[in-house]
Write a protein that binds this DNA or RNA. Structure first.
Length: 926
DNA sequence: GAGCACTGC
C-alpha cells in the first residue's frame, strides 16, 4: 500500500511536469479492480470448447448473427423515427466510406497534376517578379503575404503592423532577458497609428542595423555562396527551381538570397477561434490580467474562469435534466470546474462523481489541480484511477479516470451504483473506449433515473450527441482563446516537405517573436525536414538568428522529448517538428506559428483481409482546426496551411472517421462479452461498426479459446514476458537516422535465432540481468520507456495468472517449446515462403506478404513463419515474426490445418533440428 | 533493399 502511494507520488510529480520522466524507478503494485476484472474475462475465455462443436457453433452463431442483422435492418426500415434515422446515418456513412475509397486515388492523381502545373506557371511568373524586387527585410511581410486584392489602405495597415510588431518583439527580448516565459506584446503592436513617428524611427534604426552588418562583413564569402548553392542543389526538394540568388544589393542578409525564388505565397483568409472577450482586450490589458491572475488566490482564479459565470445556470439545468450535453470551448475550465460545482451542490452525498479522460496524463494532472483547488490531498476527496495505479480512497468523491478504466469498472459494478454523476469528457475525440461507454451509460441511465450524465465536448458533434441521448439538452459555454490568423497558400504545393522548410525559414526571418510548430506525419518526415533545415541554416551562416530544431514523436526517447519544453533563449527561435502527438497529448508553451501540411498517418483495419494499414491520409477539417488552435494558446497566433482554401473546403472531410469504425474489434467483443453483452448487433453504438468488422471480430474471438488450452503452465512465465514485450509493439528498439550503423550493431548483438519473439525475450532477460538499468538501454538503443511499460504489463499479467491460480514454474529456456507455444497462439497467422523465394503467402487467406524490415528475420532464409500482425504501409508486411516447423501447425491446431496444408515445404514431415528436445518438452504443450 | 501515427486496459 505504501509502495503504491510512493509510486503515485512520483507520478503526480511527473504529471506536474506535464510529461513523464523516465529516470524514475518504478514500484509495482497490483490493482484490485482490474485484477478481479481480468479473472472474470479469463473465465469466459477459457470455457472448454471441443473441436467439432466449435466449428458447428461457429456456423450456427454466424448464421444467427447474420439473421439478426437482417432482422434489425428490416425492423429499422419498418419503424419510424430514431431507428430509421440511425439506419440512414449508417448507410450514408458506409456509402461515404466506399465513395471516399474509390475516389481517393483518382483525386490524388488529379490533385498532383494540378499542383505541378500550377507550380510551374507560378515559378515562371516569379522569375519576372524577382527582377523588380530589391530590399528584403523592410518588405518582409509584404513578400510573405503578397496579395493583389488588397486596397491601398489595407496594405498600409499591414506595413504598419509589421513594422510595429518588430518593435514590439525587440521589446520582448529585453523583457525576456530578465524573466523567462512568454511576454505578451504591448499595445503598440495593435494601435500603430498612435505612434507612427516612433515606428518610423525604429524602422530606420532597424534598417541601419542590417546595413551596418554589411559594412562589417563586406559581403558573403565565396565559400558561403557556394554552401548556399550546394544546399540548394543537394538538399532542397525544390533544387533547380531557381538560379543562385541575384536580386538585391550584394552583401545584405537577404531573404531572397536564402529562399531563392522559392518563397511561398500565402493568403490571409480568416481568423479562427478567439473568444469575443479576448479579442476586445489590448495586449497590455491581457498582460495585466495575466499578472493579476498569478497573484490571485486559488478561489479568485476559479472565479475568473469562464465556467464560473455559468455555475448557477448549469446547476439548475442539471437538476431538471438527467442527461446534459455540455459544449465547452478550450479554456472554459469545464474539466476542473464542473465536478466541483456538482460536489458543492451536494451531488456527492448520494455517490461519487466520475469523470473520464482519454489520456492518463490528463487524468492525473487534472485530479491534482482539482485537489489543490479544493485544498485536499490528492487521493483523498479527489483522486484518479488509471491502469497500474489507483489513487483513490474510501473518501474519494471526485474521481478522474481514463475511459478504459471505467470500462473495466463496469465488470465489477455493472450499474455504476457508487456514482451519482458520470461525466464523459473530451467526447468529441471519439476514442474507441468513449464510444463504447456511450452505449453503456445510455443503457444504465434508463433504469437508474437517479444517475446524472454529462457529456462534455468541444464544439463539434454536439447535436449528434444530443440526438443519441434522446435529445438531451445542449448547454454551451464560451472559452478563452486568442485569435489565430489562418493563411492558405495561393496555389497548391507540389512538395509539402520542402514547403515546410521554406515556410519555416520565411517565418524565422520575417516574423516577430514566437516559436513554430510544424505538423508532419512520422519519424521519417521529421528527420528529413530536420536535416534540410539544418543544412539551410548552416548555409545561411552566423548572421541569421539561431533556429533551435526540436523533433518530437512518441517513439523518441524521453530525454530528447523533454528538449521541446526548454524555454527558448532570447534572440533565437524554436521550431518543433511534431507528429500528431502535439495535437492533443502534449502542449508546448510559446507556440505562435503553426505550419500545417494537412496530412497525418491514419490506421484503418480491413476486416476482409485482417490487415491494418497505416497510410498518409489528408486530415479532416476538425483535425486541422484543432492544429490551428495550437497557435492561439499564449497570444494571438498564425497558422500557415500548405494547401489552398479551396482544398480545405472541398477536399477535406468534415470529421475523422471514428476509431470504432476503423479498428479490429476483437478486444471490444471480448470486453462486451465479459460484461454479459452478447448481442452486439443491437448494441447501441453512436456510429455502429460495419457488420463485416463485427463478424470478423466474433470469428477471431471464437478462435482464441483453443490456443489458451494449449498454453501449458510451465511455459507461462516466459510467454507472459513475450506477451508483455509484444504489447509495447515495435517501439523497443530505437533507430535514429544519424546513428544508423551503431543502432543496427547494437540490435544485431541482441538478436537471437528464429525470430522476433525469441529476440524480444532475450532483450528482456538481458535487461533484467542489468537490474533494469537505464544506462544499458541507452547503450543498446533500447527504449527505456518501452521496457518499463513492458515491466508494468508483465507484472499485471503475472498477478492475473496468480488470481486464477496458475502456478508459475520458471524453467530453462527451451526455444522449441516456446516457439511451439507461440505457434499454438498464432496458428491462424502462419505464412509460407513462395516458390519464387521473394515473398510469403499467408496460409488459408492466401495473401502475399513480406517480412517487415524491422524483423530479425528480414534477411534470413526461412520457410515457415507465424506473425503477430499484418500491416500495410509501403508494402504488405508481417510484423513480429517467428520461424516455425510447419508440422507444429497440424500438431497444435488439427482442427485448422491438415497435412495437405503443409506439404510441398522443405521441412514438413522431417524431424527438424531438435526432435529429441521436442519430445522431452512435449508435456509442456497440451 | 527498406521502416513503426496516437491512445488505452
Amino acid at each position: 500500500m505504501s509502495s503504491s502511494r510512493q509510486q503515485a507520488k512520483r507520478r503526480h510529480r511527473d504529471a506536474e511536469q506535464g510529461w513523464r520522466s523516465d529516470d524514475d524507478e518504478y514500484d509495482y503494485s497490483g490493482n484490485q479492480q482490474s485484477a478481479g476484472a481480468g479473472s472474470h474475462a479469463t473465465e469466459s475465455e477459457s470455457e472448454p470448447v471441443s473441436k467439432l462443436s466449435t466449428q458447428d457453433q461457429d456456423l450456427i452463431d454466424r448464421l444467427a448473427f447474420e439473421e439478426r442483422l437482417r432482422a434489425r435492418d428490416s425492423a429499422a426500415t419498418r419503424s419510424t423515427g430514431e431507428s430509421e434515422r440511425d439506419r440512414r446515418d449508417r448507410e450514408a456513412a458506409q456509402e461515404r466510406d466506399l465513395i471516399a475509397r474509390l475516389e481517393a486515388d483518382e483525386r490524388r492523381q488529379v490533385l498532383e497534376r494540378s499542383r505541378q502545373i500550377s507550380r510551374s506557371s507560378y515559378l515562371e511568373k516569379r522569375v519576372s517578379d524577382k527582377l523588380a524586387e530589391a530590399e528584403a527585410l523592410a518588405r518582409a511581410e509584404r513578400l510573405l503575404f503578397r496579395d493583389q486584392d488588397l486596397t491601398e489602405r489595407e496594405l498600409r495597415q499591414r506595413e504598419l503592423r509589421e513594422r510595429t510588431f518588430r518593435t514590439a518583439s525587440e521589446h520582448h527580448e529585453r523583457v525576456d532577458a530578465v524573466e523567462t516565459g512568454y511576454v505578451l506584446p504591448d499595445e503598440t503592436t495593435y494601435e500603430p497609428e498612435k505612434d507612427l513617428k516612433r515606428a518610423r524611427k525604429k524602422e530606420a534604426e532597424q534598417f541601419r542595423r542590417y546595413t551596418s552588418t554589411e559594412k562589417g562583413d563586406t559581403g558573403r564569402s565565396a565559400w558561403e555562396d557556394e554552401q548556399i548553392g550546394k544546399g540548394q542543389l543537394r538538399f532542397g526538394a525544390g533544387a533547380g527551381r531557381a538560379g543562385p540568388g541575384s536580386s538585391g544589393p550584394a552583401g545584405l542578409l537577404m531573404l531572397d538570397d536564402l529562399l531563392q525564388g522559392e518563397d511561398i505565397e500565402f493568403v490571409l483568409d480568416q481568423v479562427a477561434g478567439g473568444t469575443p472577450a479576448a479579442e476586445k482586450l489590448t495586449p497590455a490589458e491581457i498582460a495585466a490580467q495575466e499578472e493579476r491572475h498569478r497573484a490571485r488566490t486559488i478561489r479568485e482564479q476559479r472565479e475568473s474562469l469562464p465556467a464560473f459565470e455559468y455555475r448557477e445556470e448549469f446547476l439548475r439545468v442539471m437538476e431538471q435534466n438527467q442527461v446534459v450535453v455540455l459544449v465547452g470551448e478550450t479554456g472554459s475550465g469545464k474539466t476542473t470546474q464542473i465536478p466541483q460545482f456538482l460536489h458543492e451542490a451536494g451531488y456527492t452525498r448520494r455517490g461519487r462523481i466520475g469523470c473520464t479522460q482519454p489520456r492518463r496524463v490528463a487524468a492525473m494532472s487534472v485530479a491534482k489541480r482539482v485537489s489543490e483547488e479544493m485544498g485536499t490531498r490528492l487521493g483523498q476527496e479527489v483522486g484518479y484511477s488509471i491502469r497500474f495505479e489507483d489513487c483513490t480512497s474510501d473518501r474519494t468523491v471526485i474521481k478522474y479516470m481514463t475511459d478504459g478504466m471505467l470500462l473495466r469498472e463496469f465488470m465489477t459494478e455493472p450499474d455504476l451504483k457508487s456514482y451519482s454523476v458520470m461525466i464523459i469528457d473530451e467526447a468529441h475525440e471519439r476514442t474507441l473506449h468513449t464510444d463504447i461507454l456511450f452505449g453503456l451509460v445510455k443503457d444504465i441511465a434508463r433504469y437508474r433515473p437517479d444517475l446524472k450524465l454529462v457529456i462534455m465536448s468541444a464544439t463539434m458533434d454536439a447535436d449528434k450527441f444530443s440526438r443519441f441521448f434522446d435529445d438531451a439538452l445542449i448547454f454551451k459555454m464560451h472559452g478563452r482563446r486568442f485569435p489565430v490568423d489562418i493563411y492558405y497558400t495561393k496555389s497548391p504545393e507540389a512538395d509539402y516537405l520542402d514547403a515546410c522548410v521554406v515556410t519555416t525559414l520565411q517565418i524565422h526571418l520575417t516574423q516577430g517573436r514566437g516559436d513554430i510548430l510544424v505538423f508532419l506525419t512520422g519519424q521519417e518526415e521529421i528527420e528529413t525536414v530536420q536535416e534540410n533545415l539544418q543544412k539551410r541554416m548552416k548555409a545561411l551562416g552566423p548572421k541569421a538568428p539561431e533556429l533551435i530544431i526540436c523533433p518530437i514523436y512518441a517513439n523518441l526517447p524521453s530525454d530528447m522529448q523533454n528538449k521541446i519544453f526548454e524555454p527558448t533563449p532570447a534572440g533565437s527561435r524554436k521550431v518543433v517538428l511534431a507528429t500528431n502527438i502535439a495535437e492533443t497529448s502534449i502542449t508546448i508553451d510559446g507556440i505562435v506559428f503553426v505550419i500545417d501540411p494537412g496530412f497525418s498517418k491514419l490506421n484503418s483495419y480491413n476486416p476482409r483481409t485482417g490487415m491494418s494499414s497505416l497510410l498518409v491520409t489528408p486530415c479532416s477539417r476538425a483535425m486541422v482546426n484543432q492544429r490551428a488552435g495550437r497557435a492561439g494558446r499564449v497570444g494571438p497566433g498564425k497558422c500557415f496551411r500548405l494547401y489552398t482554401r479551396w482544398s480545405y473546403e472541398h477536399e477535406l472531410e468534415e470529421n475523422t472517421v471514428p476509431e470504432i469504425q476503423r479498428t479490429n474489434l476483437g478486444n471490444v467483443v471480448l470486453l462486451l462479452k465479459s460484461l454479459g453483452i452478447d448481442d452486439l448487433v443491437n448494441f447501441d453504438f453512436l456510429d455502429p461498426p460495419t457488420p463485416e468488422t463485427l463478424i470478423r471480430a466474433l470469428e477471431q474471438v471464437r478462435a482464441s479459446p483453443v490456443p489458451s488450452r494449449h498454453l501449458h503452465f510451465p511455459l507461462a512465465q516466459l510467454i507472459v514476458t513475450i506477451c508483455a514485450m509484444l504489447s509495447v509493439n515495435s517501439s523497443v528498439f530505437y533507430a535514429p537516422k544519424d546513428r544508423k550503423s551503431e543502432s543496427e550493431n547494437a540490435r544485431l548483438a541482441l538478436t537471437r535465432p528464429h525470430g522476433d519473439h525469441m529476440t524480444l525475450l532475450n532483450v528482456w532477460n538481458s535487461w533484467v540481468e542489468t537490474n533494469y538499468s537505464v544506462q544499458w538501454c541507452f547503450e543498446n538503443f533500447i527504449q527505456y520507456r518501452s521496457m518499463n511499460h513492458a515491466r508494468d504489463v508483465r507484472d499485471q499479467l503475472l498477478k492475473l495468472l496468480e488470481r486464477v491460480e496458475i502456478k508459475l514454474v520458471s524453467n530453462e529456456e527451451d526455444d522449441i517449446a516456446i516457439r511451439k507455444a507461440i505457434t499454438a497462439g498464432f496458428f491462424y497467422h502462419a505464412a509460407q515462403k513462395n516458390i519464387s523465394g521473394k515473398d510469403f503467402r499467408t496460409s488459408k487467406s492466401n495473401q502475399t506478404v513480406l517480412i517487415h524490415p524491422s524483423s530479425t528475420l528480414h534477411k534470413t532464409p526461412v520457410e515457415w513463419v507465424v506473425y503477430h500482425e499484418l500491416m500495410l504501409t509501403s508494402r504488405e508486411f508481417m510484423r513480429q515474426v517467428t520461424e516455425i516447423d510447419p508440422t507444429w501447425l497440424v500438431e497444435v491446431a488439427p482442427h485448422y490445418y491438415s497435412g495437405s496444408d503443409i506439404t510441398g515445404s522443405e521441412t514438413s514431415g522431417k524431424g527438424f533440428h531438435g526432435e529429441k528436445r521436442h519430445k522431452s518438452s512435449g508435456s509442456a504443450l497440451r
